[in-house]
Nucleic acid binder design. Structure first.
Length: 451
RNA sequence: GCCGGGAUAGGGUAGUGGUUAUCCUGAGGGACUGUGGAUCCCUCGAGCUGGGUUCGAAUCCCGGUCCCGGCCCCA
């Protein structure tokens, strides 16, 4: 038996690779239309880059290793952190905002299943240095456009952490991580029980996350009115909306992933309302959904996720929001909005017409091989072209061209050379003509234009 | 980490303990020495891996690897 692929990795044959390339290009066109510039970062980074911002369960899934110099390194499990590291170390003095996009393979040590691999590709954008409704709406509209460009439609759910964290401010700090996790996990019964237990069921949290769309926004406004009328639970102003202060080494339990390092989020429902209005102006169809909290502490404002049908259990194809990561990596505080698209999942449901075109085949008789090679060289300046390398007879060459789906074959033989002409055969129509090289070149060039 | 289903030529498959492992497709060559996809002929090519049971294993049992679906998790 031959050597197998490592678990969770894939080979992409020509057809699939071509399809992926076209989908990437379509989404790339959208990004560039919106003025985003491509960046690239290393495939591996210092392990620390990813452990700083992540909880224990996430860290377990990182492909990490020690290099020959004893450094703790990791294959990148995602691309936002590397891009922000790059920004902090090399782009902090650049003009704002920075519109960046990226595409690259990432690695996670997970159990493979449909839509989940150990090597997978992410495509995404970061709008750095701005976190106002304007940039949030831009990011979501951009993601929407990218998906549309490859014929994918998804349900966009938009939430607002400013509100959720403010509500959490009314709850004793020790309970905040649990509450957050239960919202994220949709553990509604456990959440209700906990809120009852700590006497906070009056906050309206469950009603809020159960509502979707405009009613949710109305409920949010109602809650904000109530919140403004009451003092907050604790007075440590910096941490009040942020969950617990960082407990170094506290670790243990899944809850720990969501403790500490939380970013304070102002309660500005008016801003969220503006994001909503802008999204409507952009013509984006979405659902307001305060249940979207995206687990991580560094998200601060609007957050969103996009789900698609036809993907089995792994339905989420996009996630993003406004976050504060630059300061976490030692830079100045810089709010940004970004998102990542799960390229592999999108590839499972892309709707694009196939556009594979076979190269032109140059068929020749063995006695004129040298002249044929020269002609091939000239034609290749204008069109993709292949010539036989199997020592086949002319008939077999035509057979091979037909089998490969070639539309045109240029035939070179002694008769053609004597006449100073070449034969251009249309394999689909069946006809052929005797033409000068320049004429053939012109016709083929026209045929391949726009392909 | 957990549960279930799988793995036979390049691709798709048949075969439930016993000759030379079935069929389709594919690839290469030829019939056809300058004109293609048909047809015919020839050729190439396989039981994931390691152990066990057995006179004998693709077939039964165990471990591993990988694949598919789901759980957990999901930056």
């Amino acid at each position: 038996m031959t050597v197998q692929r490592p678990r969770g990795t894939r080979d992409f044959l020509p057809e699939e690779t071509e399809k992926r390339g076209r989908a990437k290009l379509a989404m790339q066109d959208v990004l560039e239309c919106w003025g985003y510039q491509e960046v690239a970062t290393p495939t591996f980074e210092h392990l620390e880059l990813f452990t700083i911002k992540s909880g224990a369960s996430v860290v377990e899934e990182i492909y990490s290793f020690t290099d020959k110099g004893g450094r703790a390194l990791a294959l990148r499990p995602e691309l936002t952190a590397p891009v922000m590291r790059m920004y902090v170390s090399e782009m902090q003095n650049s003009s704002k905002p920075q519109r960046l996009w990226y595409y690259g393979n990432c690695f996670r040590y997970e159990r493979p299943q449909r839509g989940r691999f150990r090597e997978f590709w992410q495509m995404g954008a970061e709008l750095i240095g701005a976190a106002k409704p304007d940039s949030e709406a831009e990011a979501i509209a951009l993601a929407d456009q990218m998906l549309k460009s490859v014929g994918v439609s998804g349900d966009i759910h938009v939430g607002y952490l400013g509100l959720i964290r403010s509500i959490l401010g009314r709850i004793e700090a020790e309970h905040r991580p649990s509450v957050m996790r239960m919202i994220d996990k949709k553990e509604r019964n456990a959440l209700a029980a906990l809120l009852d237990e700590i006497g906070q069921s009056h906050l309206g949290l469950i009603e809020l996350i159960d509502l979707k769309g405009q009613p949710a926004l109305d409920k949010a406004a109602e809650i904000v009115q109530e919140l403004k009328g009451k003092p907050e639970e604790t007075s440590a102003s910096g941490a009040v909306l942020a969950g617990e202060p960082a407990a170094a080494g506290a670790a243990v339990g899944r809850g720990s992933a969501r403790q500490g390092r939380a970013v304070g989020a102002e309660l500005r429902l008016d801003e969220f309302q503006e994001t909503v209005d802008l999204l409507n102006a952009y013509g984006v169809k979405f659902t307001i959904d305060f249940e979207i909290v995206r687990g991580l502490e560094y998200y601060s404002g609007t957050v969103f996720e996009i789900y698609a049908e036809g993907l089995g259990a792994q339905r989420q194809i996009c996630g993003g929001g406004t976050y504060e990561l630059a300061s976490l990596f030692g830079g100045k505080e810089t709010s940004s909005t970004g998102f990542g698209l799960g390229f592999d999942r999108i590839m499972e449901i892309v709707q694009m017409e196939g556009a594979r075109t076979s190269p032109v085949f140059l068929a020749f008789t063995p006695d004129v091989k040298l002249q044929a090679a020269r002609i091939a060289g000239m034609l290749r300046k204008s069109v993709p072209l292949v010539m036989d390398v199997m020592g086949r007879s002319l008939g077999a060459q035509l057979k091979a061209a037909a089998g490969a789906g070639a539309q045109f074959v240029v035939i070179v033989g002694k008769d053609e050379l004597d006449a100073g002409m070449l034969t251009l055969r249309d394999m689909v129509g069946g006809g052929q003509e005797s033409l000068a090289l320049a004429e053939i070149e012109a016709r083929l060039k026209t045929h391949f234009q726009g392909k």
